[in-house]
Design a protein around this nucleic acid. Sequence first.
DNA 1: CAATATAGTCAGTTAGACTGACCATATGTC
DNA 2: GACATATGGTCAGTCTAACTGACTATATTG
Lengths: 130, 130
Amino acid sequence: MTDALARWIAESGFEGVKPAHSAAIQPLWERPDGARITELARASRITKQSMSALVADLEAAGYVELIRDTQDARAVRVRLTARGRSYGRAARAFSHRIEERWARQIGARRVAEFRKTLELLRNEVFLKAD
Amino acid sequence: MTDALARWIAESGFEGVKPAHSAAIQPLWERPDGARITELARASRITKQSMSALVADLEAAGYVELIRDTQDARAVRVRLTARGRSYGRAARAFSHRIEERWARQIGARRVAEFRKTLELLRNEVFLKAD
DNA sequence: CAATATAGTCAGTTAGACTGACCATATGTC
DNA sequence: GACATATGGTCAGTCTAACTGACTATATTG
């Protein structure tokens, strides 16, 4: 799936994005007002150093903008730019098409159940583990 | 899951094994007469160079043995040693315990369905893709 | 028997994470 | 209000698990 995503990105001409950047873009998609690096790192369960690097890439390529937090001089607010939102929309449409293909091949019911099980595993098993 | 596997290996005292070595050990488990490096690489969908390295590690640590193929002087046959089989047994038992824990947390039926869907996705979607 | 295919290795590279040490600013405590 | 501690973030370096390309040796095929 990661490979498929990489191929689609390349075809779609979204330069400078790689599958790994999803760890930043996905949580930002649900935070229209932006988020801090530490928050994004926690959301994607990677270190803040790693998230910092992803965000730096995305800023250089124009997908996010950084705004210094007015309340807390240590912090930056990361927010999707118009280009970032455009990528987000296209990526969601892509993942939709993938699921539709799966539905044709193994059945829509099975795909829906699979999604639900993945969510349950995340919430009931993995997030409660350590 | 990879982290959990790594922790379990460390606790169990199987020295020199890492999660990545599963790519060699798993297909060997189903081939009591051994297999060639190229065959193992194909089975786990990694390059033969990568598989070669995994096999070299495992041989050094005593989990597999290499026998030059008598029919084909270019080839080696890789086979689990007694120690390798012992690891394989323990690893299967571990993965069983994981599934049992999942079953308690999200229901046995759901886990069984999940397994089946993963198999279907592999066979009907991914292996037919490229 | 020449051309091509196959098994495997060697050397070097890459992606995507990680740890540890650090600086700057906030926050809580006495 | 000062000090101790917590928090947001960066810099530098490392590590794992893969990859590509170039190669050798042996088999197979036309």
